[in-house]
């Protein structure tokens, strides 16, 4: 479903003598099969969002190749958009000044969703994510948890085969977080939607992901199951301790940052 082959992305920042190149992602390779639920971990600035932007066609890679749902994201961005759903937790796809349900209508037109499918799917998602009480509220008046549920709904209205989430639980309270996790788990289990999830919340990872990829300084430092990840540390270490050790690059098998 997702194939990344030696993908890299660098940015040139600063000007004059302060000009330098930042390698946000380098030489990244992995594949994600249909129906997988993969956690994508990494410290701040590791290159997670850059990876997601390349996967969704927002950003062209400076090297390497990517394919998502069989398409080259940069070249076939529009076709790809109809096959994937994306949630950027720190941004919203919803229209700030419109009631939530009007945003969904616009999205229906945008993604050319058939009227009957749209109704059915919206009713289902609204039930699962409990949107009923704020469908008529302008987005700017929603709480963060409500907005995030609206954003996840918006990303799924066109029934994508792949869902990419960039920090969807950031800032949510425990109840909202639990509801979101429960929803994502069911989406993956019952509909078979492939999910790639970026988060700093290891609870999300423990509850949801069978497989974990860890990126640091733009390179893949670990790719394996949750149990294999735990096994990189001594017995009895919490997931937090294991991951923290991997982030600092002291664990075996992690390439040292250049």
């Amino acid at each position: 479903m997702i194939e990344v082959d030696r993908a890299g992305r660098s940015f040139t920042v600063g000007r004059g003598s302060a000009r330098r190149t930042v390698h946000a992602v380098r030489d990244l390779s992995f594949t994600v099969g249909a129906g997988e639920f993969v956690g994508y971990l990494g410290p701040n600035g590791a290159g997670k969002s850059t990876t997601i932007k390349m996967l969704t066609g927002v950003l062209a890679p400076t090297s390497g190749r990517l394919r998502v749902a069989g398409l080259d994201p940069t070249r076939r961005r529009t076709a790809l958009a109809r096959r994937i759903g994306v949630v950027f937790g720190q941004r919203t796809t919803l229209w700030w000044d419109l009631p939530l349900k009007d945003s969904f209508q616009l999205i229906r037109y945008l993604y050319k969703v058939d009227r009957i499918d749209f109704r059915r799917r919206l009713d289902e998602l609204a039930g699962l994510l409990d949107l009923g009480s704020f469908m008529d509220t302008p987005v700017r008046q929603l709480s963060l948890g409500q907005r995030m549920r609206g954003d996840v709904t918006a990303a799924l209205l066109h029934d994508p085969a792949v869902l990419v989430l960039d920090e969807p639980t950031i800032g949510l309270d425990v109840v909202s977080k639990a509801a979101m996790r429960d929803f994502l788990r069911r989406l993956n289990a019952e509909r078979g939607t492939t999910v790639l999830l970026t988060t700093h919340d290891l609870g999300d990872i423990e509850k949801l992901c069978r497989r974990v990829m860890l990126i640091d300084h733009g390179r893949l430092g670990f790719d394996g199951t949750l149990d294999e990840l735990r096994a990189t540390g001594p017995d009895g270490d919490s997931l937090e301790e294991v991951v923290a050790r991997l982030y600092t690059g002291s664990a075996p098998g992690t390439p040292a940052p250049p």
């Binding site: 932007k53 066609g57 927002v58 529009t78 958009a81 950027f88 941004r91 796809t93 993604y111």
Partner: peptide
């Protein structure tokens, strides 16, 4: 602000 990333995602 970078919010344009969301706009660039849309099939439009």
């Amino acid at each position: 602000s970078g919010d344009v990333a969301v706009d660039l995602l849309r099939p439009a």
